[in-house]
Nucleic acid binder design. Structure first.
Lengths: 240, 240
DNA sequence: GCATGTGAATAGATTCACAGCG
DNA sequence: CGCTGTGAATCTATTCACATGC
């Protein structure tokens, strides 16, 4: 803490596109910190994040004037600021609903715990799965959803069920008090305005690729999906 | 075929944001076709896709003038046109590299086969896994990557390895001739210009949610992540 | 009459280019 | 001098609103 409260919050409005890139910068900063780098320039951070330097500077400027002209950004300081913005300085209890292959993968994903996302329950509707152990969790029945969410003050729900039940699960999560949902089910779900929703859809990503693939074969002007060379990188992940 | 060649291709430039929505429209159309709907208005399709009607019309207009004023769009016809644009009328051999929990989930994901994405090989570097059966596949060793890609004319590679080896795998895929990559490894990878790249990053999505979650708790203006309202919760029809 | 298709208007994101400052 | 921070310019996407045509 100590040295980090010198400068203050800065609650400007941060553009959505910027928010989506903060986790990428964060990851690069974690690597840099591990490599004992003290400072980093926008140029180099841009390389690591696969974007260009102007974008890095503009993005970071929304958080505040955290750099030093002629020098760059202090790695530890920036790391802390971005973590704080992303809410990673606190603990986020989450539930995963649907423990099929994907649910399994999510439950085992180490990137969650590492960032403060603590799985408090794995829920499934299949009686055969109830009780099954998975890491440090036992799979519990869907009808415990309400108790778990309320009891553990779960704010984020992850849906990894089949498409048919996804909307129903979303409704139950929202009713129980969840206010952010990450949906992996391959279907559109709708939630009330006050609930934040993001989706991850595997087959959609492939379809986007085959669109451009096909185009490039046909010689019709390619996309700008490709990376700028061997340095800059990924393209925009469209809205959702 | 027959009736579908009446009108022609229309190779306008299609905006990236539009391309990303076509698979969503497609899924809605598949459901509609199964439900025997003959035509669909932009209004209703918008509901099913979770967007607004103006966007649907603008998006579809990039493909051509495929609707009928006063009536709407012919479901089957539009279904075909979008499939064609997305390259789903052909077969896409893909390889999945990295068969951990996520790779398993991907290998078992039914949405791939359904759309013409045919898994031709599952590759892993871990000797213990080689030979293991998984659905109709045996896991093969990474060093067969080149042969498989060339032999089966694989255009799309899926990376589901740990972050540390992702760049190396990407390089090998590109060298072998793959020209589209879907990256699930939690790291930025870079590829040559002519290769299309998309990424799916689970922990980034959670971080984006906790950003907004935190903001809403603090009362700082929320995002527009949430869906329009409670409007059209799609009809329950499995598929996709 | 009714829903599409589309120019025009608006909003949002990216990039440029350079002043400002350590 | 070097690198940040940021207005201004540009590019992309969304939304509006209505003429168009079945």
């Amino acid at each position: 803490m100590s040295r980090y409260d010198e400068r203050m919050p800065a609650d400007r409005h941060i553009p959505e596109a910027t928010v989506a890139r903060l986790p990428v910068y964060l990851r690069a900063l974690v690597d840099l910190a591990e490599a004992k780098a003290a400072t980093i320039s926008s140029e180099r951070l841009a390389d690591l994040a696969g974007v260009n330097a102007a974008k890095v500077r503009k993005d970071l400027s929304y958080l505040g004037s955290y750099g030093t002209r002629g020098v760059g950004y202090d790695v530890e300081f920036l790391l802390y600021q971005i973590s704080r913005q992303l809410g990673l300085t606190r603990d986020w209890p989450i539930v995963i609903v649907g423990v099929g292959h994907l649910g399994h993968a999510l439950a085992n994903y180490r990137g969650f715990a590492a960032r403060g996302y603590r799985i408090v329950a794995l829920l499934d509707a299949d009686p055969d799965k109830i009780g099954e152990r998975l890491g440090e969790h036992r799979i519990r029945h869907m009808n415990e959803l309400d108790d778990v969410v309320r009891g553990e003050k779960v704010a984020i729900g992850v849906i990894a069920t089949p498409a048919v039940v996804a909307q129903e699960v979303a409704d139950r999560l929202v009713n129980a008090g969840v206010s952010s949902i990450l949906n992996f089910a391959p279907t559109v779900i709708s939630v009330p305005e006050h609930v934040a929703l993001r989706k991850v859809d595997l087959s959609i990503e492939l379809q986007i690729l085959s669109f451009y693939q096909q185009r490039s074969v046909n010689g019709v002007g390619g996309p700008d999906l490709a990376v700028t060379a061997r340095a800059g990188a990924p393209a925009a992940i469209p809205a959702v």
